[in-house]
């Protein structure tokens, strides 16, 4: 079972708790890490999971799979909101906070586009979201 299935197979409460624990684990590990810049306290498995979800979203948009795309985008929106809050909490990373906020906005716009079956717009927004992810990873890898 891949990590996406591990997460999405759980109900919402357990899933959210698991994701929060991932953040916390990242924070605990980061407090022990020595002089690694920048250490954002974000669990790598969580990032991989978000990337997987984004891959799935892109595919579902291409296939015009409304239900699958909506499930992916709602999940991503939740995660980006948490990421945004996390950046606000740790401070000092305005570029990370900006990209997380941009991603939250994009996922909200994606939700609208998919809900209205505007797959052309959803495809373009999906590329923007992927680019935002890439920019963040280039900055903080």
């Amino acid at each position: 079972m891949n990590i996406k299935n591990q997460f999405t197979g759980l109900n919402k409460v357990i899933r959210t708790t698991t994701i929060l624990i991932s953040f916390c684990c990242g924070l605990v590990f980061s407090s022990y890490a020595e002089d690694q810049t920048p250490d954002l306290g974000i669990d790598i498995d969580l990032m991989n999971f978000m990337e997987e979800t984004n891959d799935s979203l892109t595919s579902n948009i291409s296939l015009m799979n409304r239900d699958g795309a909506l499930e992916d985008v709602v999940l991503l929106n939740e995660l980006f909101v948490m990421l945004e809050e996390h950046f606000a909490e740790i401070g000092d990373y305005p570029e990370g906070a900006r990209l997380a906020k941009k991603s939250t906005t994009l996922t909200a716009q994606l939700n609208d586009a998919i809900t209205t079956d505007n797959y052309n717009n959803a495809t373009k927004l999906g590329i923007e979201l992927s680019n935002a992810c890439k920019s963040c990873h280039e900055k903080f890898k």
């Binding site: 984004n54 891959d55 892109t58 595919s59 999906g126 590329i127 992927s130 890439k134």
Partner: peptide, 8 residues
Amino acid sequence: AERPTVNF
């Protein structure tokens, strides 16, 4: 669904 430009 895969495409030549991955997600980009």
